[in-house]
Design a binder for these strands. Structure first.
Lengths: 333, 333
DNA sequence: CGTTAGTCTGCATCCGGTTGCAAAACCGAC
DNA sequence: GTCGGTTTTGCAACCGGATGCAGACTAACG
């Protein structure tokens, strides 16, 4: 039903090649021809079929956007930025929700069926193996928010999570807390492990500070709340906690409020991510911010570069996170 | 580079048609042939190219998912459900973020270039004209969370927003408030207008109750907070407010807390949407819930039906919203 | 065992575009 | 006007796969 190349060619009284060429830039077309074709095209309302052309060019301009995290509000920001940045470059995101089917092989298959030009895996909890499955299938892939490695097998863009952990540790030390805890995300997530490691390293430098750790079952409000409730019930709370994520912190905050504990007077909380919500005055959460806009910008640039240079050696681009001071830690003395 | 039909045909020593047929169900293939082809295919790791086949079948199984709302947390739930439901039916969502380019014509063009089989417009703020642009272009379209009309020009799935407004009104009346206010979303959004109308209708039945209304600039935390701050500064607050959205309510809540006002003792708040966050104990927000899972399920079913029956007469499917009682309204006496 | 009806299979063409190649048109210089 | 060199143009083949059609094959029946 839609207008095709041939329709335009007939109308303009020229060959289909001529029409095709006026729509591919860099092709040799005379000014006269271009005008003839363009008027015919606009009279007919013609727009080239991207999928058909992909058959010969090998480019669909489709980018698979894969994620398994559709509950953490930070991901709304992530999707917003990714879709816009991709659109700006004339690419279209093909969304894949992995909550249902976390099987790498079928995921790769599915996206390959649509001949995506590249894939962005946006997740801090998926294992690196997952991204590797795409690379092995010959699909350019960037792992955003993924785990940093000195010998990366796929492109990784994100923050140095263990450095973030150290930063959180330093901040709590600086504030003079004498007992601190880590309330991490799911223990299996690589991001949790890394932040945990960094945090521990930093605390190990201060043997005078009591240090404990515990993991929530999930990066979610409920998990944060439940875990903090457990800690409260068990008694001997630390003076401050580093929570592996802002929603986790917010869950913890709710448990503390229920227990009649005041933040930051009775207990300090520092979160992670600096999601939009963290600055809401109801929470006013001190947290460690990831530069998500930069991460996403870099991810898109990387995937775009890989379209022309698929064999490019895997690269790691890490951005510094930064401490965002608000109201859930005791003031510096 | 990827394996093609021809490769499989060569390997199996059969014609390409045979291979094609074993991969299209309903086609006539003998058992022997099927086995021969399937082994060859799996040895080679062949998966049919969905885009190439779309050329002849006219089906891409691509569904455009269009939205302009990437800030309201409810949309994370919406995207999650849409992507899953679509995936379950073998469809792939092609995401389009309209924050950048709210121009209907180019949006239609862009999606047509990818020959999407259908489009779901998920927005309560886009004008109905927007969805109509797709219909006019011959693309099946469903407007989810859209405006209800007795003579729909496109399929609409959602709630009856004016009935929701009435429900909120009834609830506040029932609780014995003698002065109430509406703190709506952006005045231009159809959803705001409808909820406003319903709410006003209900209040009109009770002339003894003082009633006022005001609109926030946006369905966002900041807008809700700012608007409530304005109301507080102006003096003579109503005893309870119906906020056009949960984040708006949460913004309002933060302004009230700052002003030292207690909810629900000093003032009542009822929100709208029942997003995940509403039940977080920090907020414990009484609200009117939209059955988003049902809405999305119905939207997907509708779009699937339209694939086979594109000329199907526009239909409206409305689901009842329901009052979710939590802690931000005074108890019934 | 010969027929006949029904089932499979391969050929060829087409879907909407792209592109290498060679012929045609153009251009300026002589 | 002719010539040589550039552009521009159309032809035809191809991208990966679907499908109508006719011939080949199979099975059932008399």
């Amino acid at each position: 039903m839609p207008v095709t190349l041939k329709d335009v060619a007939n109308r303009a009284g020229v060959s289909t090649s001529a029409v095709s060429r006026t729509f591919t830039d860099g092709a040799s077309v005379s000014e006269k021809m271009r005008i003839k074709v363009e008027t015919a095209a606009s009279e007919l309302g013609y727009a080239p079929n991207a999928l058909a052309s992909s058959l010969t060019t090998g480019r669909t301009k489709l980018i698979g956007l894969v994620s398994n995290n559709f509950h953490n509000p930070i991901f709304l920001e992530v999707f917003d930025l990714f879709t816009r940045k991709l659109q700006d470059r004339g690419l279209r995101p093909l969304l894949m929700n992995l909550s249902g089917e976390p099987d790498a092989v079928t995921a790769v298959r599915r996206l390959q069926q649509y001949s995506v030009d590249g894939v962005i895996v946006a997740s801090s909890t998926l294992s690196p193996e997952f991204s590797k499955a795409f690379r092995d299938a010959g699909v350019p892939v960037v792992n955003s928010f993924g785990r940093f490695s000195t010998e990366p097998e796929v492109h990784v863009v994100g923050v140095d999570n263990s450095e973030c952990g150290r930063m959180a540790g330093r901040e709590l030390v600086r504030r003079g807390y004498t007992s601190v805890g880590l309330l991490g995300g799911p223990e299996t997530a690589t991001s949790t492990q890394d932040r945990f490691r960094g945090f521990s390293q930093e605390l190990a430098k201060h043997p005078e500070i009591t240090y404990s750790h515990t993991f929530a079952s999930d990066y979610s409000f409920d998990a944060g709340r439940a875990e903090m409730q457990r800690l409260i019930a068990r008694g001997n709370l630390a003076e401050a906690y580093f929570c592996g994520d802002d929603v986790l912190s917010i869950g913890a905050l709710s448990a503390l409020a229920d227990a009649g504990l005041n933040v930051p007077d009775d207990i300090g909380i520092i979160g992670f991510n600096d999601m939009e919500m963290a600055r809401w005055q109801n929470f006013n959460l001190s947290t460690i911010g990831q530069p998500i806009a930069q991460i996403i910008q870099a991810s898109v640039e990387l995937i775009v570069d890989m379209l022309d240079e698929p064999e490019r050696a895997p690269e790691v681009r890490l951005f510094p996170c930064k401490m965002v001071e608000r109201g859930t830690l005791r003031p510096l003395q």
